[in-house]
Design a protein around this nucleic acid. Sequence first.
RNA 1: GGGCGGAUAGCUCAGCGGUAGAGCGUCGCCCUUACAAGGCGAGGGUCACAGGUUCGAGCCCUGUUCCGCCCACCA
Length: 918
Amino acid sequence: MNDQELSKAYDPTEVEGRWYPLWLERGYFTAEPKSDKPPFCIVLPPPNVTGSLHLGHALTATIQDILCRWKRMSGFNVLWLPGTDHAGIATQMVVEKELKKSEGKSRHDLGREEFLKRVWTWKEKYGARIGEQHKVLGASLDWTRERFTMDPGLSRAVREVFVRLHEEKLIYRAAKLINWCPSCRTALSDLEVEHEEKDGSLWHIRYPVEGATLVVATTRPETMLGDTAVAVHPEDERYKHLIGKKVKLPLVGREIPVIGDAELVNPEFGTGVVKVTPAHDFNDYQTGLRHGLPMISIFDDAGRTNREAGSYEGLDRFEARKKVLADLVEQGLLEKEDKHKLSVGGCQRCATVVEPRLSPQWFVKIEPLATPAIRAVEEGRTTLVPETWTNTYFSWMRNILDWCISRQLWWGHQIPAFYCTACSPKPAGQATGVDFAAAEPVVAREVPSACGRCGGTSFVQDPDVLDTWFSSGLWAFSTLGWPDRTDELKTFYPTSVMETGHDIIFFWVARMMMMGLHFMGDVPFKTVYLHAMVRDEKGEKMSKTKGNVIDPLDVVRGASAENLQPNLKNKFPQGMPAFGADALRFTLASLTQQGRDIKLSLDRVAGYKAFTNKLWNASRFALMNLGDFTWDGSDVRGRPLALADRWILSRLDHAVAKTHEALEAMQFAEAAGTLYQFVWGEFCDWYIELAKGSLYGTDPVAKDSTRAVLVFCLDRVLRLLHPFMPFITEEIWQKLPMARPTASICIAPWPKPETALRDEAAEAEMAPVVRAIEGIRTIRGESNLSPAQKLEAVIQSADARSLETLARWKHYLLPLAGLSGVSFSAPGNRPSQAAACVTGDLEIYVPLAGLIDFAEERARVQKEIAKADQEATALGKKLENAGFVARAPAELVQETKARVEELKAKRQKLAEHLERLK
RNA sequence: GGGCGGAUAGCUCAGCGGUAGAGCGUCGCCCUUACAAGGCGAGGGUCACAGGUUCGAGCCCUGUUCCGCCCACCA
């Protein structure tokens, strides 16, 4: 049996590296395109290829792997499909940054083609790294079906969707006011703008109007260069007579009208007069449309003032603001500046203040797509878990605006719109090229062969690319082979569960719902499980700048001190130990409470690392004591079982049922907690200790029964734990001497509850045994007696059956309570010079003459009495309450009465004992 | 301005109508031949505050105060 022996301490680093390659080689994670088994499918939310995985990814991977491994063991044809997202703007930025750092070049120095080569190189490197990280975590992904959003197949799906939506007039091109990042120099969708409350000013500026002065209030004085009206409320008595008159715009000299607009103007706010800049503010834009105002763009794509700004041309937005204000002051037109809080929109990627800008872009007309997506959730075809997110989903979907999908970037799916170089308008001052803003494109799956207007055969493709989320929106079916009608698509669509973070409900979940319903005619997934955000132990968001990022791989493999972020370095000055993937996964599962942020505490990870060690050593104990026994898989109940055996089998079955129920309800913390409690609190703390009697004894039949139960319990508990801790469970499972139904625990059948294992009688019989042992242990502990000090106990009870049970299982009592002997008798004739404990119907006395200070024992007993009194008084009050007796369930009233009686008896016995201690 | 979470033991969190729980940390006694990453025992909470419903309330309702997040065009 030497080869079966385990090392004394569990070493995850040694074990975890071994199994994954084997699982892969044997194809356990490869889904069958067609199968008689029921399908279960999750598509992994594709991580961005920007860099490495963080703890949020580890959480996602853990939860999904728990579900997939559980379903796989439960007989499902599981497809968990991995992949990565090209993450347009984010990836382009990191590569640009690296290029700048390593070669001092910009992407423009390289040119589009060369730059894209660099991005692909980056993608290969980081895409592979992400794959490796998932393997380290044990994620049972089907790597034969790995996808990338810019794979040829997925790109084809993108073009197909674009063309079809265009044909359906759900994609259109228009010059509208859009969010523009002057730093990234691209359009952004509304979602990519993050609003933040900031301290600003409200400037009051005098605008001269025929014989009078209107004072406007603005937070952005520089935009006055593009003002095309001044608005007042049509009912405002102060100003209504001025509507229709002309204002002479200061600094510029342009004459602009005073208009009345009840929607834009709130007469209560500021001065009640609003300057209108339709080309640089969303409200003003709408106002401009309502009143047919001219729209003057005063900024270029870098956010600098253009020719329209006249003498202010060539200034950055914020310089322009300073200059405008200075000039206004000089001309005595600035009335005052008030402090003012305002919400400023910043670019999601670079935080630059977003500039609303008029620009020709591509849009998705979203309302026709949103309506079915709303209905699908209303009708319960897709359920959000926790369901509190349903309202969030609805409120966004019901107020949705058209989606700007074009980006002025290089990295991404280039828009399949083609411009005929022969008949398209040319940009001013240039002989060649196409004026994209003015030209009419042909939208097509491939480059057209000839121009429908002029017959020309030379085309240029729209240089813009699509919003990254456009392709991710197709992820649930593009990855399965759409637009081809593949077997995978037929088998696995709709997918079973979408598991992702609640921060991307709008970006991703909503878009997948819309695209899935539109192109597949069915929801993309039946359940959406939205997990919480992982934060550090103080509840702060992890970020590189804060230095509180925890790299999941460091947690798994350990890290030297110099490689740790500052906060971790403080915690682990000697470096961080390797906790192992199993411990990290178990921690994440244990902290996954629905609807709450996860504050990851490394102390907790350490606690679960200890748990893996506990499981390891419990198994080690079993292996050391199995001799040449091999469990043949036969029913353990066919053997003569001792009380402890029957009891642990019954408890195990409770754990099986509870774990299963918890997983069904996606209560991962509950499932993990159940298993933790069973393994540590019942199997290790009680069963193993009780089993030692027969294992070390001489009765071969009893010995083999215990051995069979040990193996049976371990087999089951390892299977239950496997979805949470894949590595250690496989390692131990392979070592158990038993007939294995499958070559790997990965595909071993998931344990089902078996009522035949339930044994209420055994659980009831165990109760007094446990109570007696705990009572004696308490006496020992409170008296500060060494465990080595063997004690004699006298146990008395009026209930002969209790005494009989205890006597029968005396060999359980002796070792666990540390007794040299025990005697049983009816109450009365109590030992003197003894410590006492009254528990249930049991009175336990431990003679301690010469061993303890009886003054302390008296104090202890008095405390016990006080405690009993306190509880009895509280319950007594309840019983005196007529309402309680009348209305509470009879059973409860009965229980309460019984408890009071018990407490009184206990008190009585303790008091009598106290008398004898004097 | 709307909406959603959260506030329970020193820390991280369970519990969501019937006598307050776990892990870690703390304090005792122990290197008892599975495990000192361990064993046994103990201490520790007016369950944010104020009302209400109920025989009974961390648990349900109302309001208040903090903390966090999301959405929203108020210049």
